[in-house]
Structures are given as structure tokens and as C-alpha cells.
Nucleic acid binder design. Sequence first.
DNA 1: TAGATTGTTAATCGATTAACAATC
DNA 2: TAGATTGTTAATCGATTAACAATC
Lengths: 211, 211
Amino acid sequence: MPGSAVVAAETVGRVSLYRVLLSGLQQAGIKGVFSHQLSTSAGVSAAQVRRDIITLGYSGSPQHGYDVAELIESIDNFLDAPDGQNVALVGVGNLGRAVASYFAGRRPKLRLVALFDIDPEKSGRVICGVRCYPQEKITEVVRSERVSIVILGVPAPAAQAVADACVAGGARGILNFAPVALRVPPGVYVENLDMARSLEKVAYFARKAGG
Amino acid sequence: MPGSAVVAAETVGRVSLYRVLLSGLQQAGIKGVFSHQLSTSAGVSAAQVRRDIITLGYSGSPQHGYDVAELIESIDNFLDAPDGQNVALVGVGNLGRAVASYFAGRRPKLRLVALFDIDPEKSGRVICGVRCYPQEKITEVVRSERVSIVILGVPAPAAQAVADACVAGGARGILNFAPVALRVPPGVYVENLDMARSLEKVAYFARKAGG
DNA sequence: TAGATTGTTAATCGATTAACAATC
DNA sequence: TAGATTGTTAATCGATTAACAATC
């Protein structure tokens, strides 16, 4: 049964990238693709592309490679929940809003259903078509709106308390922009996305390479 | 000689996080710290914290652990260029602006000196105190402004051409938000930061964990 | 068929962790 | 000193890659 085995987080990330690349090929009218073509665009080895595709439960043929449309469908089945998933964003700052607008409409299976902010001027309003609640209501609204995914755009000192409130409401996944390791119970997945950290890595190696 | 050995990208990222955590401790008036304390906040093992600190060239003592102020200074010496580094942002959309405002003032050693956008309404103007140029001028301005780091906030189809122009101007590091593997010459460092990919990883595991 | 590609295994590689002697 | 921590080594772990037989 596909989906029942444990899949590495890295694999899921690569599959997500393959879908983006395949959509581009499809829009260009390309019907078939070989592993080494995806390999080049994704920046991984061809063997890994083939292994990832096997994980999806899809098979290619030695003569024609992989059918683009069918492979996209396999990835959809793998990545997307049939009924979609509800997403909330906590911390409606510049970053939070950019993230929200970045996703708006791109992935219809992920629905942004609630915003939260500590600023009373923001909570109570409707921003980008989504209602913004005060942060005290996180647990209540996460539960009532059946939010399974939370995007955490709050400052580091507030992150743990907000995460706790989200988990208490039933959230199972957190995309954490704050530079702290969140403590969460087993079964809750946390993905850290620290932009300052990434930029400092680039700065470091730009300097070392520049000699 | 510290800094001459090859250091893994993961190590640099962790060190960046340690600095953030240590700054928080320092502001709270805490003078000393043990490896297991940083270990908890950073979400890595204590042995790894100790090994990373050795990489910095700093030493603690078995009795007092590490001196917070001295450790921060060691990290500054490790991560920061003495004269700072110049940064450019290509693609002044919602995301780009959020990233720019996110960094403004936080890291004085990283100076945002130029923006680029394909939209003629943006180029020519001054946005957030930084001049915005048309994209045709990338190579020229990157060279004249001595930009070593580029934040790439353009759509995927444009990313490779923009990266090429930046590298031609002398850029040595790229923070790439576009979901494509950039081809760059040896000595140029690329860090990929794909938010859609991260969110889909969260969505996948939130679903699997939720049962 | 011939040949390039897929599916699959074994080998490699590197990072992380566990364990422990050295230290103050 | 006693004891907890640091510095350092060996072991573990897992992901990635290389290689090759199977396939159409």
C-alpha cells in the first residue's frame, strides 16, 4: 500500500520540487521525461530521481521514460490530502503576509483559514480575505476550524507558547520561521525555516570562496 | 589558523543559530553557559555543540563552561567579514521586500546596497532607502557596488539568467528562493530556500502523523 | 535486435551521536 | 578532593551514489 511506509523528509521535499518542474514541462507541451532530465533540473542524481519515483508507486518504461501527466498525478496522490488541509498563520507581519500571499491560490489543497496576531488593530479584521483572530483564541479556533498546519511567523521569544497553543488545538505540523528549536509532543512535525541562518551561510561561503 | 579549514555548511548554520541564542542569554544578563543548555535551545546534541565551538577556535573550561560574551565574540570573528559584505536583492515582490525588511538593521555587517526589478515602475526608484535598478544593469551594478551576496526572489523561469548575470558581475553567494537547481561555476555558493517545498513537507507529515 | 533507460543492489560517504579520558 | 563538564575518539546511523542486471 503506497503511503504506509515511512518516507524520509528529504524525499518528500524532492517530490514537491519534481511536481513544480513537471508542471513547467507540461505547460511547455512536453509529454515524457527521463530521470536524467529531472536530475539536472532538481540538482540530484538520476538514481535518486528513479528511487523517489518508485517511492510514489509509479513506474516508467525503459523505452519512454516517465509520462509527465501520469507522474504528476502520482505526486498529487502522494502529497495532497484528498479533502485538502487547513492552514493557519500566526504573526501577520511583513514576512507572514508575504508567505500568505505566496501561497494564495497556488496550492488549492492547502486552505488558509485563519490568521492570528497579538496586535489588536489586526485581530478582528479580515486580511487578504481571511479573518484575523487575537492570539488568545489560537487553541479554540485551531480546533473549531480543524487546522492541521500552522505557519509560525512570530518572534523567537513567543514561538514556544504559540506552538503549545496550536498543538493543544490539534495542529499536527508547524512551519517555524523563528530561530529556536520548538519542543513538541511525538507525532507533531516541525520544519524550521530560518532565513537569517540561510543568509549567513551564504555570506560565510561567499567570503571563503572569494578568497 | 582558524577559518582556513573546510567547514560544513550545516556547522555554519548551527553557529549562526548559537549566536542568536547567546544574544538572548546576554540580554537576560546571563554570563556563562554549558553545552547542554545550548543543546536544548538549538535542538542538537551537546557533543555537537562542543565540537562546533572547537571549530570556532574557542575553548571553555570544565568548571565554568563557556563565557557568553567571549563565545559571541568568537562567533562574530568566525561569521562576519571584518569590513562587512554587500548584498543585492533581485525581484522586489512581496517576498523580496519582506526579506529585505527582515534583515534591515539586524546584521550591520551585511549591507543591502542594491535592488533590481524587471518592472520599470520600480526600477529607478528608491525603496526602503535603497536604489532599485533595472535588471539589465545587474552585472554592471554588482561589479561597481562590489556585491558578493545576491538574494534571488525572481520567478523560477528567470532565475538561471539572473544568477548568470550576478556571477558575471562577481557575486560569490546566492540565496535562491526559486524552485530550480541553479548551475553556477565552482567557487560560487548557492543556498536554496524553497518555502513551498517546506510547507508541503509539513503538510505531508501533519497528515501522516494525524493518522 | 540494439541500445538507452529503468529498477535494484551494494558500496560509499559524511554527518551525528555515544562514550570516555582529560581537565579544572 | 569530588564531580560535572570539556575535548576527543570510536561507533553508529542514514542518506546518497555508483554500478549493473532486467526491461522494453
